[in-house]
Structure formats: C-alpha cells, structure tokens
Design a protein around this nucleic acid. Structure first.
Length: 269
DNA sequence: TCCCAGGGATGAC
DNA sequence: GTCATCCATGGG
C-alpha cells in the first residue's frame, strides 16, 4: 500500500525515542506494529510504502504518524525563534499516536534509563509474553507475571512499578478512557497515580499516548538544552522549565520538546 | 573507577 | 512544598 505523506521524516520520527518497538530491517525500512498489525514500512519521497499481511486501513497509518496535522505553525515557530533554529533540520519529525497502555509501560521502563536499553527491555518483554520481538504484551499478560520474572527480563528496580501498573490497568481499563477525555491538567493528575509515573513520565505518556500536546516532558537532555538556549546557562527546576514551555508554546509545546530533544541528542560538535 | 541514561519512591525537614 | 538518597543495568 502507498500512502501520500508529505512533510514526514520517517527515520527521525521512528528514531527519536518516542516509540521503542520499531526495528530497522534495512536502511530506511522498519518493522513494527501499527493498530495491532505487524507492518513493514518505508518512505519513498512523499509517499509511505506499507506492507502488511492483514489488511490495514490507511486511516490507521495516517493517525499513527499524525499525518493530517498541518505543521506550518510549528515551522513558523522554528523560523521565528532564534534558539530553535537548529531544529529546522528535522522538519517532518512527527509525534506518533501510540497505544496508551504501550506508552504508559514504555515510559515507566524509560526512567533513569537509556534508549538502547529501553528498546532491549521492550523486546525481551515482547518476546517473553507475546512471542514476537515487536508485539508488546497487553497489561493482563504482564499482570500475571511476578517481580522476579520482570527483573530477569531486564527491568531492574522498575519491575514492581510496571507490575503494579499492569495490574491496575487491567483491573480498571476505563481509567485510560477517562484520561483520554480529560483536559491536560486533569489527565496529568490521573496518570500520576500510576506506580512508576512521576512528572516527566506523565508528560511523555500524555504526549505520546493521549495526544495532550501541551505536555512538555523535561528529561536530562531537555534540562540541559533549555538551560543553554533559554535560561542563559542558569539552572532551572524541571517543573519551572515545563511551565515556562507550556506558557510559551501552548498547544505546540510537545512538538517543540520533541524537536529540541532530537536535536540535542543527535547534535555532533 | 566514576558518570550518565527520556526519573520515581520514599522519607526528612 | 523542596531536597537527599537509593534504586538495576550497561556503555563510555
């Protein structure tokens, strides 16, 4: 299947630490799961090539890659604001609309961790519970495991957090819908109740799993790059950094964050 | 050996 | 409310 996808940078989008279940098969070709179906995907100029054994609706792919969002307002920000100039290099980077549970689990795993290990843990959980390297287990499956097993699968001290949250989500699945319907502030209060979810993880989950685009996750990279670009080298707390960004960029804060993160992380000399 | 990675839970004040 | 400490693991 070919899908018109102007203004998309597939590589930057899949390789910017938002989503951990996509594997690069060959240069420019990825394998992963979209809407529950295993797909191979590649970009050919302004088109996406999608291969899937089952039928996958085009709209599911468009939604996953947020393809119907007009990024012009974001690009204007990147052009007008001097500190954001370097981010223009990644025009076409889009924020993926992930499954809420998968985003929640992924970013519980992400805390005080690095992207390579997050991918490794994602894979080991998927293989163990689902028998596939990219098909992440539903909460019910993880809830049936125990802490020791999760530790062995690489989670370390995060094992009890993920276990608790998996049990919680499988017992009260409607809470995720409730978070979906809530506005950003209310959704944040709700998501913070899960074990292993603090301010930063909460914002990641809201941004990548619940389309709350005011969310501005502040990790170590963002702390550093914001200090340099906006705070004259001063140290500013994570909480104040996030509030500054939300006030400044409003509904585009999440997108700006992802561009800053990717730019900072891939910055070479 | 220490420092860092998309930090959070816990307890002290 | 803010702050210090501890928590697995692997790479540099």
């Amino acid at each position: 299947m070919l899908i018109s996808a102007s203004d998309l940078d597939l590589e930057a989008t899949l390789d910017s630490g938002q989503v951990f279940g996509f594997q690069k098969i060959t240069a420019g070709t990825f394998q992963g799961i979209i809407a529950g179906r295993s797909v191979e995907i590649a970009q050919i100029k302004d088109q996406l090539w999608v291969s899937c054994k089952k039928d996958i609706p085009e709209r599911a792919v468009r939604q996953f890659f947020d393809l119907d969002r007009d990024l012009k307002p974001l690009y204007q920000l990147l052009e007008w604001e001097g500190p954001l100039e370097a981010c223009q290099k990644f025009k076409g980077l889009r924020i993926i609309q992930q499954d809420p549970w998968e985003a929640l689990a992924a970013f519980i795993i992400s805390s005080n961790n690095n992207i390579k290990r997050i991918q490794k843990i994602w894979k080991s959980l998927s293989l163990h519970f689902s028998g596939s390297a990219t098909l992440f287990p539903r909460p019910q499956k993880i809830a049936k495991g125990d802490e020791l097993l999760l530790r062995r699968l690489g989670l370390g001290y995060r094992a009890p957090f993920l276990l608790k949250t998996a049990k919680n989500v499988s017992r009260y699945p409607a809470r995720l819908d409730q978070i979906h319907k809530a506005d950003y502030e209310r959704a944040r209060d709700l998501i913070l109740r899960y074990s292993g979810v603090g301010p930063k993880v909460a914002d990641c989950v809201l941004l990548f799993g619940f389309q709350k685009y005011e969310a501005f996750p502040v990790d170590t990279w963002i702390t550093k790059v914001m200090r340099k670009l906006y705070f004259r080298g001063r140290k500013v707390s994570e909480d104040k950094t996030a509030r500054f960004a939300r006030k400044r960029w409003g509904p585009w804060a999440g997108y700006v964050q992802q561009y800053l993160f990717h730019t900072a992380r891939t910055f070479k000399d």
